[in-house]
Design a binder for these strands. Structure first.
Lengths: 205, 205
DNA sequence: TAGATTGTTAATCGATTAACAATC
DNA sequence: TAGATTGTTAATCGATTAACAATC
């Protein structure tokens, strides 16, 4: 095990491994080799072994990896054994869809609070949660110990709300607004922009 | 200009550059240097110049890049001068949200047809488009000359529908199902899995 | 002209892969 | 034991960066 700095690109692959292992566990497969897993993901077996070796020794020579065990270890490494509370900012069409999305809970996240700045929306319920005034962000973030936020506001409002979030102590932001935002060091940002993914494909068509 | 094979990672950054240039053009900025742009995106100026150099010479020494011109060149390179018709498969909560998403049109895509296999949904309208039977996929894809599809079906159905799409001649797939799918060479796949992005951040929290 | 910035080369840096001893 | 597969090392491959001549 090398306990130095693990490359971001390696950390970025762990959730992909985890997703595949969770699937295999559901399928009832109890053991998987790096070769099996690699074939499934389009990744070389050497890369999988090297990636995992950053965190420890999880396999058995001649056999491979115990699916459930490796899955749990990856959850531990990624710190998603429990359930992270997440703040959702923006309750328009996109934000509402995010609020109803079923995919977060099984992966270790729950929308703990929903915010908007439209008086017409504040107080209403979305996916069984009350929409709160953005002004309440600092209080709620503190009270619920929220460290991650999902930004689903219009592009024009994105940087402003991100600044607010950072001030509230948010350390991870998942940004659905199709715009680059800037954050201070130590704050993680990930982007979801489906159009960008489509544009990555057209070059090859 | 090097007209050999352009690395995928370079092609992948072009939509990011394009997004920033579109934004700058809207802001009324007419010229941008690689340094400006890089600072905005958190990318080195050298990398931006190197990336662009794969496709031609677009800048002017001492000045930088004309924003509108470079934006249009990137659109040309990415082949998004026109509007690509896209098939949307799956009309549940997620698919419906995708159908209503406003972000595709300005980036060069339009949902040209919506499909589901639920008789209760077929014939209804979603975002002003009729939901069609998946059985009609081959005909519609051919008639509308569709080459890109968005998959928003349950994980359990994803690989099956992807196989159908590939048989229909689809060459690019944007997959919202949280599962790895396999496709033959020559078919592009991109993934949208918000939970994976969240999991990439928790490691650092 | 002086200052700024490009496009490109060469050097550096980092990631992937091949290979294999260890061992289940 | 024989076969298979891990974890790790060293080699390879590719991507990023520094530097600078060219030139606007």
């Amino acid at each position: 095990m090398e306990s130095n700095k693990v490359p971001d690109i390696v950390v970025g692959r762990l959730p992909i491994y985890l997703r595949a292992l969770t699937y295999l566990a559901e399928e009832g497969q109890s053991v998987v080799s790096s070769q099996d897993l690699g074939k499934r993901l389009g990744i070389s077996s050497a890369q999988i072994r090297k990636d995992l070796s950053h965190f420890g020794e999880f396999g058995k020579q001649g056999t491979g990896y115990e699916v459930g065990y490796l899955r749990d270890q990856l959850k531990r490494i990624l710190r998603i054994e429990g359930r992270w509370p997440v703040a959702l900012i923006g309750c328009g069409a996109l934000g509402t869809a995010v609020a109803y999305y079923q995919g977060f809970a099984p992966k270790g996240f729950e929308i703990a609070a929903v915010f908007d700045n439209d008086p017409g929306k504040i107080g209403q319920r979305v996916s069984d949660k009350p929409v709160m005034d953005v002004a309440e962000l600092p209080r709620v973030v503190r009270e619920k110990n929220i460290r991650i936020a999902i930004v689903a506001v219009p592009s024009t409002a994105a940087q402003r709300i991100v600044n607010t979030l950072v001030d509230c102590g948010i350390k991870g932001i998942l940004n659905y607004a199709p715009i680059n935002i800037s954050v201070p060091p130590g704050v993680q940002v990930q982007y979801i922009d489906p159009a960008v993914h489509l544009q990555r494909m057209t070059y090859y068509l």
